[in-house]
Nucleic acid binder design. Sequence first.
DNA 1: CGATTGTTATAGTAAATATAGAACAGGTCT
DNA 2: AGACCTGTTCTATATTTACTATAACAATCG
Lengths: 126, 126
Amino acid sequence: MVILDPESNIPLYMQLRTQIIESIVRGNLSKGDTLPSVRGLAGDLGINMHTVNKSYHELEAKGIIEIVPKKGAVIIADTEKGPSKKQREDITEELRPAVAEALVHGMKEEDLHQLISEIILIVKEV
Amino acid sequence: MVILDPESNIPLYMQLRTQIIESIVRGNLSKGDTLPSVRGLAGDLGINMHTVNKSYHELEAKGIIEIVPKKGAVIIADTEKGPSKKQREDITEELRPAVAEALVHGMKEEDLHQLISEIILIVKEV
DNA sequence: CGATTGTTATAGTAAATATAGAACAGGTCT
DNA sequence: AGACCTGTTCTATATTTACTATAACAATCG
């Protein structure tokens, strides 16, 4: 279930790719599953085909799905294997500004570990 | 020391505000210190005054500095006190997409804690 | 065959990003 | 007092990004 907020300052294609990632984490989508067609999903969400296409290509760049021309987008992310070196570096750069912001407000290492644990529960919707 | 990359896909004002935050975390800038004037820093960095101004206002919105009209921008972030509720929520939303990405690639809670610890060392430039 | 697939191309609008220059009023400093 | 610097505000413009809208193509699938 994907819900987009057109009023958000976060671009639609980012909202979509994040929600697809979280769906995989929760197990609503699994390795080997095929994502809806770009046209179909765009229609359901009331957005343009190209916006969905952009999300899919970002997911492909992150190594989460594989897009097979004329066929579909298949989930290849292995939620058991662990990230590649590049994937780990990308995640590091994504986390860095927020970690710095946490530190500047006085959060300690243990506080951040606690916050990460909370976020994991939120993403998994436990 | 601030270094901006005009070729980066990260906007200049974001690069600047992140680097100022990290400077505070490292102790290069401390509570009570005054940031350079928007004109002065813009000149040093070879960018426009309004771009620096935007960074400063984002830092003010995050509660890291206080801008006193006609005087200057003073650092008010307390690196000992701990974040306010809103600040903690903002940090949570900033971390969430990257945490989801880590999970989808199979990182476990302990792996993320380890990564966060590494990032803390990077930010502090130990 | 007919429908659907991802891809590509073109086009347009709107917003975000960045620059530029000018002017204002309130501080600072000599 | 006068000169200077401060952040603020305004207008203006160029570029890039985000999003939508159509259309067409070739390949897959039932």
